[in-house]
Each structure stands twice: as structure tokens, then as C-alpha cells.
Nucleic acid binder design. Structure first.
Lengths: 139, 139
DNA sequence: TTCTCAGTTGATACTGAGTATCATTAGCCC
DNA sequence: GGGCTAATGATACTCAGTATCAACTGAGAA
């Protein structure tokens, strides 16, 4: 599977269900919801139980190969990503494609906020939505 | 109602249900979920229908007096806030209290990301989680 | 004050996401 | 191949949020 996840190394079994979910994810370019994945699995007549799809998504997210997004609509979605470092996603609201960006100047913004508010900040989440270069031109 | 929302001015009726929801929100200091509000309404024996609570939350969010948060757990929550300007929330994961922060250096980070990725970014959401000064000390 | 009517309510039923259960299956290591 | 145990998947369930719609009520007009 191209999805960047090494199950064996992390002590998880490589099963049919997990392989199927990873393949479905690989075949997509943008973000996707669990429902979309389930539909797609059904179309392709893959034998994967509903619960197993949710379990695989949860596992992949835990291993950092997938990140969970909250779309502005309130829906939960996922994007495949590199597990190594902390980063954020820029999501195209037209085609759904997303790009990873590293933290760039954000860390100093966060520590500035920590200093000003007295909070000890341990998690942050930045999500950016807009139009990618292609969709922006096409309008 | 102390909640910063002027229904009359925006052409909405001031109804019993909306007043009740606003009062429930005023009585809380931190963020809250719709479910918590519903429970609280029930405890206080307020006559507010389930649907009306959701509708009031939606309306207040639309008017900017409330902001919707996505907690790291995946739950949807709300915080009361000042409707005037764009801002972000720093949420304490122990007591739930939240503080608003203005955009500070974030705008330049966002435009930097836009330049580097070629995306035309029109929405962003920054959520910060950690421990507030009190809860940080108490540990 | 009363009238009027559109905006709003709330009871109910529904949808759809995600989870718990548990007997069965199948990876993985020996 | 055998055995242990993680994982599966069918099913049923919970719970958030929404659609429906008859009944109600807030607010301006008379």
C-alpha cells in the first residue's frame, strides 16, 4: 500500500480489511469522509464491514498517516499525509485537494499567544480553506 | 440577556425559547456542547424544545455571538464571544474556560502560506488547546 | 387594546454517523 | 501445520442533529 503506514512495524496485523481501506484512500486525491469511503467500497464490491472501515481510519490517524479535518460545514473528513512532522492542511473547497504546509511562522504566533494569555498551549490546529491554483483560475 | 446579541435589531423575534437559551449560555463560563445545554434546560425545567435549542445555537452563531469549536475529541462545542471582529479561541482542556485572541501575527502567516502554495485562502480556523494559568498551576 | 399574520415553537419522527457486542475468522509466530 | 489472539463483520444500538407541521405568539398596525 502506498499510504504511508507500516502496520507490521507498529505491531499491527496486515489484514484484508486494512489493505482495502488503504487502497481506497490511495485512489483518492483530496480529502474524503468515512461515508464516501464506505460508498466506494460498496461500489467496488469490496468485502469490508462498516465497523472495520471506521476502525482502520482511526488506526491510520493514530499512526499519523491520516489526519482528521473538520470541514467548515461541520463534517468530519480525512486526508492522507506524511506522518513524520507536525503540519497543517490547506484544503481547496472546490476540488477538495489539499496541500500540507509546515508550521512556518505559526510557532512564534502560538508562543506569543501563550505569553499574552498565560495559557500553557499544548495543541493547536490550523485549518485553511480556499481555492487551489487550478480552481481559482477556472472561475 | 447578557449574551452579546441584539435579535430585534437584526429582525429576529425575541422569544421565550431564545431567551432561555441565551440565559443558559450566560450562566456558563467555558465552552459547552448542545447536549450539555439540553441537559441543563431539562434540569431547570425550562420549556424549550430540543429543536429550538439547536435553532437558537445556529442563529446565535450566525450573528457572531457564539462560535462553533471542534474539540480535539471530535465533539462540537460552542463558546460565547464578541461578534465584532475576527478572532480565535484558546481553550483550557481542564476547566473549559476560553479566551479570545486577535489574529496577531497569523495574518502574515496565512498570506505567506497562500503565496507558497498558490491557494487563494478565504477561511482559516485556528484553535488552541492547553491549560489556563489557574489549571496549569494547580497541577 | 385588539387584530393579524408571518416567524417561531415544540412534539414527533426520522436520518445518518459512529460505536458496542460477540461469535467467527485469519494473521503471525513457532 | 497448529495455536494463540488480534481483527473482522453482521447486527443492533446510541446519539447528534434535522425535517415536518399543526399550533402558537411576538410585534407592528389599526
Amino acid at each position: 500500500m502506498a499510504l504511508n503506514v507500516d502496520l507490521a512495524r507498529t505491531g499491527h496485523r496486515v489484514t484484508r480489511a486494512r489493505r482495502a481501506v488503504a487502497e481506497l484512500i490511495d485512489s483518492r486525491s483530496g480529502h474524503f469522509t468515512a461515508a464516501e469511503l464506505l460508498d466506494q467500497a460498496h461500489e467496488r464490491r469490496l468485502k469490508v464491514g462498516r465497523a472495520s472501515v471506521f476502525r482502520a481510519l482511526e488506526l491510520f490517524a493514530e499512526l499519523g498517516a491520516l489526519e482528521r479535518l473538520d470541514l467548515p460545514s461541520g463534517e468530519h473528513a480525512y486526508v492522507a499525509c506524511e506522518p513524520e512532522q507536525h503540519h497543517h492542511h490547506v484544503v481547496c473547497r472546490a476540488c477538495g485537494r489539499s496541500v500540507e504546509v509546515e508550521d512556518s511562522g505559526l510557532l512564534s504566533v502560538v508562543s506569543d499567544i501563550a505569553r499574552r494569555t498565560g495559557y500553557q498551549i499544548d495543541t493547536h490546529r490550523l485549518e485553511l480553506f480556499g481555492l487551489c491554483a487550478d480552481c481559482g483560475v477556472a472561475r
